[in-house]
Design a protein around this nucleic acid. Structure first.
Lengths: 180, 180
DNA sequence: TATTGTTATACTCTATAACTATA
DNA sequence: TATAGTTATAGAGTATAACAATA
């Protein structure tokens, strides 16, 4: 309603006992709604957005991540967590800073992500013998098993993009972006 | 340092008088650091991430947005704000819900964005005469002027992507994503 | 002095629930 | 009952500052 011409609403604070924090899933809870058929459902004139790569890249990124999140929701692995596990698995013993720099995640943020993965028993941080400041990162046995499962689901996710984009476009775009 | 084998740090709370909130820029404060030469600086084995479109799309999206933010930092327009102004400008009188659905932004989020743009004198919400629930959105004169400036800067941003991606790749990717 | 890992803080954004005015 | 706009809240992510241990 047109609040512009009425008194402010005052928020009517929810009637809940204030002690009932609703548990939300760890990753974005986008799982329930069906994905839209088109990535960019156009009902309205996009104006100059039509000439901006960033707009379409953003729409595609959101759509791809949502599909990824849905497919890996069973094992509760987010895209960021997946990338962390993959990099550690492929580069055992690397440091948190190297990992963070590789993925473009802040060091401070990486600390919390690794805390969580440690607590879930998927990763370990071993003090480096060569450099007392560093942690050498590795997957636990459970982490390796989880990563294997995640890779299988992620591969399914990736396969699903082919028909969505069309095989030619898919290959073209992937190769183009990989080279940048 | 290897906290795993030491007592928890206890956070040493910062010595500040606790009454000095540092003013941060409205958009992501990524302006100061130089953009990396390569979008995905690879120093480390990416493993199966090399086969995932989502990874590269995400890296590209972040990179493109950072450039956009820098270039429009003078006028303090974020990518999301730009898209809102463009859509309103190209579709005067549309409702908040339509705008939000078009851009994939939550209605609740859109409220705060429009509050801010209203407060800055760039947009207006007029009660619809046909439907008492709706607001018809439009740009103010100032909003039109600001959008014009923003479009010019955004066009410069877009031009800068061409040499970065290579003109052929740029056209290919833009056309591919636009069709999806 | 610089770097690694860490904690804390502020802010942005997403997801959701609940409320109101209206249809 | 459903929809448009709104408020509130929880959580994820980003940016930044500051600190201890170590180099």
């Amino acid at each position: 309603m047109p609040a512009v011409k009425r008194a402010p609403k005052k928020a009517k604070v929810t009637g809940k006992p204030a002690g009932k924090p609703v548990k939300r899933p760890a990753t974005f809870a986008l799982r329930k709604r069906p994905l839209p058929t088109r990535i960019s459902p156009v009902a309205i004139d996009l104006g100059v957005l039509n000439d901006h790569l960033g707009y379409f890249v953003r729409r595609l990124q959101v759509w791809v991540f949502q599909d990824f999140i849905r497919r890996l929701s069973h094992i509760d692995i987010s895209p960021a967590q997946f990338s962390v596990l993959v990099i550690i698995g492929a580069n055992e013993g690397l440091s948190q800073s190297e990992l963070a720099a590789t993925l473009g995640i802040e060091r401070a943020r990486m600390v919390r992500m690794l805390h969580l993965l440690d607590r879930r028993g998927l990763t370990e941080r071993l003090p480096s013998s060569a450099d007392g400041r560093r942690h050498e990162l590795r997957l636990t046995r459970a982490g390796e098993a989880q990563l294997k499962q995640a890779k299988a689901l992620a591969a399914q996710h990736e396969s699903s993009l082919l028909p969505k984009l069309g095989p030619d476009r898919y290959r073209m775009v992937l190769e183009a972006l990989r080279e940048i």
